[in-house]
Design a protein around this nucleic acid. Structure first.
Length: 222
DNA sequence: GCGACAG
DNA sequence: ATCTTGTCGC
């Protein structure tokens, strides 16, 4: 119910993919604050691969934003539709993620993605508010944030701030938060902190990661 | 030009 | 992402 999928969104070549991404960029909404952290629902999405068999499994796990309890979940399995090309991850991951989101019995609320452009791409395609939380800085640079949880520092592409390195646990490697669609960077960081009461990574991505791995396993045992 | 790089 | 054992620590 949230999917918008047209043929031109899923190009076969790198060149076409870049052209599609350039088109989608114009539809990004970056002037909204986003939903208040701790309210409504928050959904994590993730995918697991079996490159041997060319299979990809995606999961979407919906949490109550206040309690962080799981209120719904769905999975989808498909074929790998695009190679891993840094900068074009969305074309590899999103087809199956969209299928998993479609299979949910309720609206997902805010969606949390692993990685950078994924959240932007998914947000534009679905209209949903999205944010990105990555485990690595990719090609960007940053200075180490202060030790306490909640500290952050700019994530930079040259001099442009493209996100924040955000400490979610005292003295532990930060996560890398970026905006997706319809949520400010400050809002994305606030959501990330609300989703990390006990671990470095957001509960959304932890739950989605576990579920897509299980879905991939069960693809063979069932 | 080459290498590295989210997942 | 995935391949992979044990190990240190709360």
């Amino acid at each position: 119910m949230t999917t918008v999928r047209t043929p031109e969104d899923w190009p076969a070549t790198e060149e076409q993919a870049r052209a599609v991404q350039d088109q989608l960029r114009a539809r990004l909404i970056l002037d909204e604050t986003g939903p208040p952290p701790g309210t409504g629902r928050v959904t994590g999405v993730d995918v697991a691969y079996d490159d041997e068999r060319d299979v990809v499994a995606a999961a979407a796990v919906v949490l109550d934003a206040s309690s962080l309890d799981v209120v719904a979940e769905a999975t989808a399995v498909g074929r790998v539709s695009f190679p891993y090309v840094p900068g074009l991850l969305a074309f590899r991951e999103l087809p199956t993620v969209l299928a998993a989101l479609d299979a949910l019995p309720c609206p997902p609320g805010l969606v949390v993605c692993d990685g950078y452009g994924l959240a932007c791409h998914l947000g534009v395609l679905t209209g949903l508010p999205t944010i990105g939380v990555a485990k690595n800085p990719f090609t960007f640079t940053y200075d180490d944030p202060d030790t306490p949880r909640g500290s952050s520092s700019p994530l930079l592409a040259g001099t442009e701030e493209v996100g924040r390195a955000l400490r979610t646990r005292d003295a532990v490697k930060p996560v890398f938060v970026s905006v997706g669609h319809r949520v400010s960077l400050a809002g994305a960081c606030a959501h990330t902190l609300a989703l990390t009461p006990g671990y470095r990574l957001p509960e959304t991505t932890r739950r989605a990661d576990a579920l897509c791995r299980k879905a991939l396993r069960e693809t063979y045992s069932a």
